[in-house]
Design a protein around this nucleic acid. Sequence first.
DNA 1: CGGTCCCTTGACCATATTCAAACTCAGTGG
DNA 2: CCACTGAGTTTGAATATGGTCAAGGGACCG
Lengths: 250, 250
Amino acid sequence: MSDQTTCERESRPRRLILAGAHRQPGYCLTCGVRPRSVCSAISDDDIVRLAETAVETLVLPGRAFVEEGAPATDFFSITSGNVKLFKALPDGRRQITGFAGAGHFLGLAVTDQYAFGAEAVDTVRLCRFSRARMRHLMDDFPRLERRLLEEASNELVAAQNQMLLLGRKTARERVASFLLDRVRDMLNPSGDVPLPMTRSDIADYLGLTIETVSRTLSWMRTERLITIGKGHTVRITAMERLESLASGNS
Amino acid sequence: MSDQTTCERESRPRRLILAGAHRQPGYCLTCGVRPRSVCSAISDDDIVRLAETAVETLVLPGRAFVEEGAPATDFFSITSGNVKLFKALPDGRRQITGFAGAGHFLGLAVTDQYAFGAEAVDTVRLCRFSRARMRHLMDDFPRLERRLLEEASNELVAAQNQMLLLGRKTARERVASFLLDRVRDMLNPSGDVPLPMTRSDIADYLGLTIETVSRTLSWMRTERLITIGKGHTVRITAMERLESLASGNS
DNA sequence: CGGTCCCTTGACCATATTCAAACTCAGTGG
DNA sequence: CCACTGAGTTTGAATATGGTCAAGGGACCG
């Protein structure tokens, strides 16, 4: 996830992808997120093979780069910025199933259609890998496959937590859990939590409305649990109480 | 999943496990669910190695065999019956994150504590594999690891669908989706849907209360979408309308 | 400045929950 | 055979939590 407290969002240009593509031989060697990403499963000696298949792509804020139901051609690894993953109902209701930041891997699925959509929250850089080439790499490097299984297992655990949240927690508990999850995902955790996404995104992630999210954050402010800062940051001022709130005690 | 329309449940003996253990050399060769399970990744020649590590176990209805937070020592493969997986809050609120039937694999997680609890819905037979031994098998048989990745990917997709349901669907849409999912998971789909689990389980799975589930099923009956039969079965009488209800059109 | 997004706050309302009571059905024992 | 029991389910009435509708404020950008 990102620690950046600033974030640029865009007005509303909803079309797919803007792909400033790119490639270089020893590219992955200098990649800042490799240690945290699935790419760490491949040694320096072999990383050239991976670099060959990687296409670096820039995605502007608000742009979609995966469309739910479209043919699933690529995997993605986020190198910087934040994306949101979501599913939608025909009438427009939307559920954000997760946010993914630097080091996260996207696109795991057996089906040949993407089961989810993905959109940049802020300015995103990512590597695209064709599924076919990736499959070959997996054949040659079992460690890569093991790393993907780890990644999938972790996401499964996160998904189960989110189901508990969506099915059984109150609005206050949901927002508290959300803030604490943000802290845990930070590289160098502090009381200052960056929220690069909009209230609307938070609402769609927590199964609430914008109004309820806003009201709940205001309530937390009056209760002196948090202070709401500029530039989409929140400072947690009563970690203990927020934690007991998140786990349902109160 | 199971097609059995009958099901035995038990009064209320909530303690962990009842493990009638067991082992045999060529056991897996005759296993009825192997083709559908992760064990299909291992050839007849090599299956003995798997059989050596498998411990067949019987779990009576209502018995828990995985406790949330306990040390994660084993993986499980269901050979018959149905289990429920769940997470709970300190005050007892419970979210069932999934039901698993014959052929399903449980226990994927990187952590050394189980992130979920598991309990038998009806009479369950399963194979237990120690994590350590399974890890060795994965080293020797990359196909097994690939199969597990597939399984995890599929569960991830199911989890995302469930998040959409829990976060954004109405009670009627949830129950409709639930019934249709049951049909899709059946081996030989028909209009008759077995519901081995209690209303309470359904409620905890759909993020509703027992009363709302019951009311909603009654409403579907009066709307002639379903008929409610004996022995925990439901017959779908208007598939089309139920499907459009499940996806939010109506 | 004027416009657009995004966020906040208020008043009202709807859906699902809570509380309560009655019914079904399988099992048990007189 | 039938009354008794208890878990599971159904139904009703009242309530609460979060949603809907509406208005206003603030930041950013041309």
